[in-house]
């Protein structure tokens, strides 16, 4: 076990904003950091080792303790329900989870079908609404499902709403707001308390100062 703090970063949408935040918090990440195709990047000056994972997998790495800390969207946290500490809302990558469907929604008479990347979240949401639905798990391009008749409605994250609009879908219900979070492995939270507390402290200062500007 090295003394570096292992941080699981989500590739894609959140990555750039998260890197920016870490830099603002005073962690010296080199400019070429973003361009690397490596999956593991060690940055001794920052005392950190970064692993680049699929966003949906970040909580898995952290739960098993191969990463001490991770950055994960609340959507992923809700879907995965991993046993990790969720310690700080970074307030980046704002979006929300919503139910959407065709403008003139024709409910399936036998069993309403929902297509989604988030089967657990969707199942729980509709249960809470008192509605029994059948869920079909997809891995991407969820908007396709109602267009082609695979499902009546979808549950997905919406940031600008453009994709929905361009495909003739309308938002029906908002489920909840989503932002990215710092998550921490329970063992690391105690064994590496000082380093992790400092990371959280520095990041929360950056987050707070941004809030004030807004």
């Amino acid at each position: 076990m090295s003394s570096l703090l292992t941080v699981a970063m989500p590739k894609g949408r959140i990555f750039q904003e998260a890197v920016e935040l870490l830099r603002q918090a005073g962690y010296p990440l080199p400019p070429e950091f973003e361009d690397s195709r490596k999956l593991i990047i060690e940055i001794e000056e920052a005392g950190m080792r970064f692993i680049l994972a699929k966003p949906m997998d970040v909580p898995t790495y952290v739960e098993h303790g191969v990463a001490d800390v991770g950055i994960a969207g609340k959507d992923v946290m809700l879907e995965e329900e991993r046993d990790v500490y969720e310690v700080l809302d970074l307030k980046i990558s704002d979006c929300y989870l919503a139910v959407a469907g065709l403008a003139e929604l024709k409910e399936h008479s036998v069993a309403p079908k929902i297509a989604t990347k988030y089967p657990n979240v969707a199942a729980q949401y509709f249960r809470e609404q008192g509605e029994q639905v059948e869920i079909i798990k997809l891995n991407g391009s969820i908007e396709l499902a109602p267009l082609i008749g695979l499902a009546d409605r979808i549950v997905d994250i919406v940031s600008t709403g453009r994709t929905l609009k361009e495909n003739g879908l309308v938002e029906l219900e908002k489920i909840r707001e989503i932002t990215s979070r710092i998550i921490v492995n329970p063992a690391s939270y105690r064994m590496k308390a000082a380093v992790i507390d400092e990371l959280v402290e520095r990041l929360s200062k950056v987050v707070e100062s941004k809030e004030e500007i807004r």
Binding site: G65, P186, A187, S188
Partner: peptide, 11 residues
């Protein structure tokens, strides 16, 4: 109480 060690991600 819970006990932890560096080599493990779980208590």
């Amino acid at each position: 109480f819970e006990g932890y060690t560096n080599q493990l991600g779980f208590p």
